[in-house]
Amino acid sequence: MPPASPTDGSPPLPAPQTLVSRCPGCGAVLAVSPGLDARHPGASPACTRLFDVTVRGLRDEAPSDLRAAALLDLAQLAYDAQHGDDAEAVRALRAALGEGARRPVQPRRPPAWRTTVADVAADLDVVDLPALLRAWAQAVSADWAGSDM
């Protein structure tokens, strides 16, 4: 829809533009939010914020709910494995998934990710958060192996 023309006969105003950036870790394209700090090495401020918002409920429940605490740990491990170059983060993720050493770990980060925290957040209204987090963690593990799930 084109921008509305002002009533004084002057040319139409340009539509406001949303600035976006690509997260250097997962590649998610997210709206830039001024004033945010990236608290995770390898992640953009917007991606860090989206992760925090996505798992906020789990953080609130984790102190009194072991299942919420385990899901929060799994989400953090998936995020760490996706936003770093640390093979230890991948091994910890695989241990949490019960995969052990069944899959190799590539020497370099995958060139692309099949699922990111942006995908998890986008599907929250139609899919249960625990299922989304498990699927994301499994996809990150598979991406590090360079294989299909």
Rank of each mutant, 00 (worst) to 15 (best):
T54I: 01
L36W: 04
V127H: 07
V105M: 01
R22P: 03
A62W: 08
E88D: 15
L30P: 02
C26P: 06
R91E: 13
P41W: 08
E88Q: 13
D37P: 01
P111E: 14
P45S: 10
W136E: 04
A78W: 02
D125S: 13
A137V: 06
A92N: 08
C26M: 08
W136R: 00
A69R: 09
P130H: 12
S33L: 13
A137G: 06
R102C: 04
S21C: 09
A122E: 12
E61G: 06
A92I: 00
A89H: 07
L72Q: 00
R49Y: 08
Q76E: 15
G27Y: 02
D128S: 12
A95K: 11
E99T: 00
L93R: 00
H40M: 09
R102M: 14
D52H: 08
A121L: 09
A142Q: 03
D119F: 11
V32D: 08
D37H: 12
R67W: 00
D86Q: 09
D119Y: 10
P34M: 10
R114E: 02
C47K: 04
P63F: 11
P41D: 14
Q106Y: 02
G25Y: 02
S141A: 15
V29C: 09
D73H: 14
A38F: 06
D73T: 11
T116F: 05
W113T: 03
V140M: 03
P110I: 07
A78V: 01
A70P: 12
G27L: 06
V32W: 11
Q138P: 04
V29A: 13
A139Y: 00
A89K: 04
A112H: 15
Q82R: 09
D86E: 13
R109M: 06
C26G: 12
L66D: 15
A131T: 11
A38C: 10
P111R: 15
R108T: 14
L30E: 04
C23T: 06
C23A: 07
R108I: 11
Y79L: 12
L97K: 08
L30Q: 05
G27N: 01
D119P: 10
E88Y: 03
L72I: 07
A135H: 07
A87Y: 13
S141R: 02
A142K: 00
G98Q: 05
G100V: 04
P24R: 05
Q76N: 15
L133M: 09
V140E: 01
R22Y: 02
L77D: 01
R134V: 12
A121K: 08
W113I: 03
D73G: 14
R22S: 14
R134G: 10
V53I: 15
R59E: 15
A89S: 05
T116S: 11
G42S: 08
G100M: 12
R59D: 07
A92T: 01
R102S: 13
L129W: 08
P130C: 14
R39L: 12
A137R: 00
R91N: 10
G42N: 02
R114Y: 04
G35T: 09
R39E: 11
D119M: 07
A87H: 15
A118R: 13
P45T: 12
D60H: 15
R59N: 11
D85Y: 05
P63R: 11
D128P: 05
D143G: 00
P34C: 07
D73E: 15
V53G: 04
A142R: 00
C23Y: 06
D119A: 13
